[in-house]
Design a protein around this nucleic acid. Sequence first.
DNA 1: CCACTATTGCTTTTT
DNA 2: GCAATAGTGG
Length: 810
Amino acid sequence: MDLPAKSPSLWQSKPPQQPGQLFIFDRTPQIGQYSRLGPTRTGPAPRTDNLATADAPRPEPSASDGLTPSQQSAVDHFEGPLLILAGPGSGKTRVITRRMVRLVERGVDPRQILAVTFTNKAAEEMAERVERLAGGQRVAVSTFHRFCARLLRDHAEMVGLQANYTILDTTDQKQVVRSVLDELNLDAVHFPPGRISGRISHAKNQQQSAEELRSDVATRVGNHFQEVVARVYPRYQEFLLKANAVDFDDLLLHVQKLLNENPELRARLDDRYRFVMVDEYQDTNLVQYGIVRLLSHDHPNLCVTGDPDQSIYGWRGARIDNILRFEQDYPEATVVRLEENFRSTAAILRSADQLISHNQMRKAKSLVTANPEGEPVELLVFGSAQDEAHGIAGRIHELVSRGVCTYGDCAVFYRVNSMSRQVEQALSRWSIPFQVIAGVAFFERAEVKDMLGYLRLIENPADDAAFTRVVNKPPRRIGKVTQSKLARFATAEGLNRLESAAEAKRITGLSKQATTALLRFHELVDGLTLADAGSVAELLRTVIDRTRYTAGWQSGMNKSSEQDIQRQAVIDELLALATHYDEDAGDERSLAGFLEVTSLVADTDAIDPSQGAVTLMTLHAAKGLEFPTVFVVGIEQNLLPHERSLRDDNPRELEEERRLLFVGMTRAISRLSLTLAAQRDLHGQSRSTIPSQFLGEMELTSRDHTDPRGSAAPRPPLPDVTRLSQSSDNVDQPLLTTAAALLDGTAKAATLEQGFAIGMAVRHPRYGLGTVIAVDGYVRNRTVTVRFEDSEEGVSFQADHCPLQPVGRS
DNA sequence: CCACTATTGCTTTTT
DNA sequence: GCAATAGTGG
């Protein structure tokens, strides 16, 4: 397939600027001087440049039912392998959903179609679109992990598990490693559990078993750390198997094994899923690749889509070559390239293209658009990270008040999560609503993990990881020493820890106090079942009750601290979530089902651009999304590219960093700003930064906002709290994403459209009806105090995480 | 022997 | 700026 020749004008722009030259500009940014582009790409912005006129002007396909010829050919492809190489903004999602619809129209049974994505959000969206277009017919759209979890549920015994196995998250993994280290008499200080579990995960992604890793390590000399990993790995795996538990990697690995070792099952599934589609194929790892191939052997109607330039998950085992070698794997494959970009302005696309073309290990590919030139991509230079954040907040404020775009149109991307804080603070000061994807995620909260830990232990008593997590929560005098003795006893007797607790009297060297504490704990957990409780929510309430989990911080004498209020709010939210699940699942409900749902959610599932709030997220989380206005912050050496990628001068890692920025830039529809700060705090100390090497690789208009006299941070126009809490037709609608919304992207019921205002009538699933009597704090730390009908006292909730819903008209 | 607190140390990205 | 650790009081 031939590539369109690069348009010469694309490369005749200004020569790349040297980073050093970037900081000499007027420091009075007048946003008003920019030519205005409509708030969306369909806006009537005039063309200011003839860059794209070489291509025949073409109507925007999404405006009608029309598809470009290449899009059409992908949609029409019927049987046989198909590779869709889709550049950013090329209408990929649209093409694959349309193709599925087309298959159904052709008479393919929808149950024979399986589509696999990486995030729940993508899966849900796709399923919904297909269902809508195919007249209510549903196809199976799932994430890799969820698909495997289900499959494994049905065939657990074939890989030595039971159907009620539990899924461990990264925290549990570390805890298991810690346990193993303890057993091997190694200290966790010198061998950080996180690093060890990371190495184990890496090995698993390379399909390296414990034995293989061991022999691999044996051939090399003197890597002590690796040797420890090799010793821990097999014990870790035994621990998991005994605990009837799997980690994220096992989910995939077990399924691959299942398919490999059971030809008849493999053939059955291959036949069942006649048409398999994989999105973001460049992000698949070796195991996922294996699974896909095993399912597409007899019926190689495999359709994969992706873009090598958007491969950003190499660090977790993604193999960019999976997509590059597709044509070798399936020589008869049809290849369709979608290269026309319908998303971004020509200016944005040009800069992104210039950047990515600096990658050496890359198949040349052109990015073409018929979109107008638009505003230049700008580089904003600030003195400090704080100024940077305020500069962005000010710019957003300006854009919104001029009606150029809405808050929901704006997004801020950063390399590391820790960078969100400053932006959050600045936005708060400006009273700008925002939504952070993955700050302290709900399911990472200690309270949630503890509660789920109890549920896990009830569902799967062998889950020693869950046992260790909850055995002393709340504190019941079962400390480190006792637990260690218990663990040794359990291993010696071949029992799980919960069973061992029941046998506490037989454990030698245990104090009387510890013995009774263990016995009582066993009794506590033993007496809990879903059947008795009737529903997950009810079971959860029983757990809270019997463990007196919240007793320590129940708001007894309005003495509870802010933290306690938040904790309570988290618990309430979890209860609401369980209720939601109970209702949703009906008779199908099971503890395993609830736990599966809760362990496989991702932070990115919460992204909801319709919320009317600025969205903050990492560059990784941004993939697959688009926003009219995009800011990418911290374009500095050692940050982007990240220092880790520069460490041993590894060009592959550097190129991945470049792709990361490329992904971020190509999310922008109309306006794109890259920002950096001359000084930035690095663990406490303020340090001078070096502009990213990537900046010199593309065309930018730069603006210096550093002030030699210091403190040039723009100020919010009216840092006014009363405005936030009192007006009910507030434009600055605070965004309230609840965990329920996270689990069920469409759970509008759980998401408030309006901010809380004093006097507003609300309903709480547990406390009933009430009235808002106070609103405090800013967006993320905002609390709402409500007085409920049957009480005098107000109850406070963390606005972000509470199941309060407005009642009636506001 | 356990719980609580002060201090240290360390920070990519995520299913 | 947080989590895990080390130290101290109960």
